[in-house]
């Protein structure tokens, strides 16, 4: 099966690869895995605690081209969005953008899960740090 052009593009020039320094604050980290294909994905969101806007995002994925492309695209997609908006992103958006075939849809599901996990992690940390409690989006 051939990868679509958009997948190859993200695969060859992945956006925002890496991670934030451990001491950097206001970062939410989500690590999610797909046992059937062995993939694992880490997504980090740097969030402004006042506005709840995602100011930066980084990822690192070990997996197939579609998994890498899905997470790469997600880092572009979430930047500038509020946490609530990012939490509402559906995997279908990723499928459409990258033209993923049915057998690779689970890669987009993984990327959606990664956003949710990163947001949840950020909320946990914010609450732990005594920040005002907000309802989960």
């Amino acid at each position: 099966m051939a990868y679509t052009e958009r997948v190859v593009e993200h695969y060859e020039r992945p956006r925002n690869v890496g991670s934030f320094a451990a001491e950097e604050g206001n970062v939410g980290t989500g690590v999610v895995g797909a046992p059937e294909c062995g993939d694992v994905m880490k997504l980090q969101l740097k969030i402004n605690p006042q506005t709840e806007v995602i100011e930066d995002a980084k990822f690192k994925t070990f997996g197939c081209g579609s998994a890498i492309a899905s997470s790469s695209y997600v880092t572009e997609l979430v930047k500038g969005k509020t946490v609530a908006e990012a939490g509402a992103i559906k995997n279908t958006e990723i499928v459409t953008e990258l033209a993923l075939p049915p057998v690779k849809i689970h890669c987009s599901v993984l990327a959606e899960d990664a956003i949710k996990a990163a947001v949840a992690d950020w909320r946990d940390r914010a609450e732990g740090a005594g920040a005002p409690k907000k309802d989960a989006a």
Binding site: V31, V32, G33, A34, C37, V40, K60, F62, V109
Partner: peptide, 24 residues
């Protein structure tokens, strides 16, 4: 068991991630 219905606990995903970094 399919590709969609087999979530793993976060701690396991983290373990796999760390091993993958060592493999890299």
């Amino acid at each position: 068991l399919g590709k969609e219905n087999n979530k793993v606990p976060p701690a396991l995903a983290l373990f796999v991630f760390e091993v993958q970094e060592k493999l890299a």
